[in-house]
C-alpha cells in the first residue's frame, strides 16, 4: 500500500483534519504546507449535491480567474481567412485550418482548442479523439465562437473551464503557491462564486457540500462553506 512521505506527514501535521478553515486561513495554510522544490499549483475541489447522471444536473462552466492560474496555456485556434490573423494577433500559439489534419495524424500538443463555428463540420470526425480528452470546443465553454480575439485573450488571461465529474466533484486550479495570499483568495472567491451561480435548478438538498484546497503535493485543507449554504 502507498504510504505518505515524511515531508507530507510533516505538512499534514500542520492541518487539523476535523476543522474547517476560513478562506484567508486556508490560503495561508496551503502556502505553509507546500514543500515541493517546484512552484506547486493550488487546486480547489468542491463536492456538490448533484447527481451528474442526470443531464439537467451537470454543472459546467468557465471562470476568468482575476490573477490567472500561473500556467502557460497553449491555445490552438482553428479558423480560416481573417480569423487566422485575429488569432495570431490575440496571441494564440497555433492557428490555421491545417491543424485539423495534424490532429488527425495524432498531434495534440495544445491545452485549449478554439474553433470558429464554420469549421465545426470538419471537427465532428475528430470528436472521438478530442472528446474523451476534454478538448472538444463547445459554445458553452466559449470555445466555439467567431470572436476569436476575445476567446484567446480570456484563456491566456486565466480563464479556466470546470465540469462536475461522475462522482459529483468539481476540481480546478486556482493559482500557484508563489502567488500572494490576496491573489489566491481572490481567485478562490471568483471560482466559488461561479460554482454557486452555476447551480442547476434540478439540484436538490445542500448544493455545496464541502470544499477543499490543496497544493500539488500538500495535504487538503477543508474550507468553511457556511457562507455559501
Amino acid at each position: 500500500m502507498a504510504t505518505n512521505g515524511k515531508r507530507f506527514r510533516a505538512a499534514a501535521e500542520k492541518v487539523e483534519r476535523n476543522r474547517t478553515y476560513s478562506v484567508d486561513e486556508a490560503v495561508d495554510l496551503v502556502k505553509a504546507t507546500a514543500f515541493a522544490k517546484f512552484d506547486e499549483t493550488v487546486d480547489a475541489s468542491v463536492r456538490l449535491g448533484v447527481d451528474p447522471r442526470h443531464a439537467d444536473q451537470v454543472v459546467r462552466g468557465t471562470v476568468v480567474l482575476p490573477h490567472g492560474t500561473g500556467k502557460k496555456v497553449r491555445v490552438l485556434v482553428l479558423a480560416q481567412g481573417d480569423k487566422v490573423k485575429e488569432a495570431e494577433a490575440a496571441g494564440a500559439d497555433f492557428f490555421g485550418v491545417e491543424y485539423i489534419q495534424k490532429i488527425k495524424d495524432g498531434w495534440l500538443d495544445f491545452d485549449v482548442l478554439v474553433a470558429t463555428p464554420d469549421l465545426m463540420g470538419q471537427l465532428g470526425a475528430l470528436g472521438r479523439v478530442l472528446g474523451p480528452r476534454g478538448l472538444m470546443p463547445n459554445p458553452k465553454a466559449g470555445t466555439v465562437t467567431m470572436d476569436v480575439t476575445r476567446a484567446v485573450q480570456e484563456i491566456k488571461a486565466g480563464k479556466i473551464e470546470f465540469r462536475v465529474d461522475k462522482t459529483g466533484n468539481v476540481h480546478a486550479p486556482i493559482g500557484r503557491v508563489s502567488f500572494s495570499p490576496e491573489h489566491l483568495q481572490e481567485n478562490l472567491q471568483a471560482f466559488l462564486d461561479t460554482i454557486m451561480k452555476a447551480k442547476p435548478s434540478a439540484a436538490k438538498g445542500t448544493y455545496l457540500r464541502s470544499a477543499t484546497i490543496s497544493s500539488t503535493m500538500g495535504p487538503g485543507i477543508r474550507l468553511d462553506t457556511a457562507a455559501y449554504r
Binding site: V58, P117, M120, G121, P139, K140
Partner: peptide
C-alpha cells in the same frame, strides 16, 4: 447542425450556438 453553421459562416446567431452547445453537452 455543424454543416449548417459552416454554410452560415459569420451569420451564425447565438440561438444556433446555444442549441449546438446544449446538444453537444448531451
Amino acid at each position: 447542425q455543424a454543416d449548417r453553421m459552416a454554410e452560415l459562416g459569420d451569420r451564425v446567431d447565438q440561438t444556433d450556438l446555444e442549441r449546438y452547445g446544449r446538444d453537444q453537452e448531451r
